[in-house]
Simulated assay, not measured.
Amino acid sequence: METKKVWLVTGASKGLGLTLVKKLLENGYRVAATSRNAHSLVEAIGVASGSFLPLEVSLTDDDAVKAAIDKIVMHFGKIDVVVNNAGYGQLGTLEELSDAETKENFDVNVFAPLNVVRHAMPYLRSQKSGNIFNIASVGGIFGSFAGWGVYCATKFAMAGFTEALAEEAKEFGIHATVVYPGYFRTDFLTAGSLKTPKSAIQEYAAARQSEQAHLNDINGNQPNDPEKAADVLIAISEEENPPVHLLLGSDAYDMLQNKIELITKDAEQWKEYTVSTGY
């Protein structure tokens, strides 16, 4: 009987990552999971075994990521599926977020998953197979949310590098998918996972209203089930030709349609200028 695939899931101590790891283990897959605190993984899932490897990794440390991936291959013999799930939400308008706050969000949401890709690819290339899921957000499709510009920019970046990765990796039999979840009922919108600006400017009424709505009203009332999202990711990993773009949630689908309509409207309205630049 074929041995089930080995998965690497980052940011696995809570939210969608934790749900996915539990479901994978229930279904007989072998899983390496990372968190900033290995104790939280052991507490939530269990100790290291033949099917589970908890790892404490600072994903923004390139050397630490390489060491972790080498350790996974030593433990399980290979890696088949990589899920770049770790990340956090950063609220704040472009004016009020500091350089440090902005760079930190990019470090965790963009440069950390690039570290994982960089060091997983040699193993995936050598075996001529694999899947990489980069978990972005509907904010990686549609950025018209006051107070979410930096966060959306990190997710737009993830979408962009995943599109390129899909082209680079396909000649090796490796599939790359950018995942755009809508609102899922996890702890993403809790104070521990969603950062607010250190120096808020109260004049930004729309941003402040969005901040309060996400922390107080939307949190706990999200329309999507993380258990079902985990089922979808597992199913997609077994597809022969998985998509480059995967939306999760009817709200994500609706936002895509809104984005298409907005871009098309602008393109058509200003087409005379657009096509006027040729020689």
Rank of each mutant, 00 (worst) to 15 (best):
S98R: 08
D62H: 11
R118G: 00
K198Q: 12
G46S: 00
S193F: 10
L24Y: 03
L124I: 14
V110F: 01
T3W: 05
E163Q: 11
D62I: 04
T60D: 00
D187G: 04
E168T: 14
P54Q: 06
P197F: 13
A112V: 02
M1D: 07
T277F: 14
T274E: 01
A169W: 03
Q269V: 04
T196K: 15
F161V: 07
I72P: 03
E171P: 10
E211M: 15
N37Y: 01
S199I: 13
G160T: 10
I135E: 06
K265S: 13
I79H: 06
D254R: 03
Q222G: 03
G249A: 09
F156R: 04
Y204D: 01
A252Y: 07
S144M: 11
S199T: 12
A153R: 06
V82F: 11
K155W: 01
F156W: 05
V108Y: 04
E272V: 14
V42C: 01
V150P: 02
G249M: 09
L215W: 07
A176G: 10
V65Q: 02
F161S: 05
S35T: 05
P226G: 09
I79M: 09
L16R: 01
N105H: 03
M74C: 10
G17M: 04
D63H: 06
T177E: 04
F111H: 11
R185M: 13
V82C: 07
M1R: 14
N105I: 02
A200P: 10
V6T: 13
A230R: 07
L165N: 08
K128D: 11
S237P: 06
E96S: 05
P113K: 07
T186Q: 08
L247E: 02
L194Y: 14
L246T: 07
E211C: 13
A206G: 07
A205K: 15
A32M: 01
Y180K: 05
W7K: 13
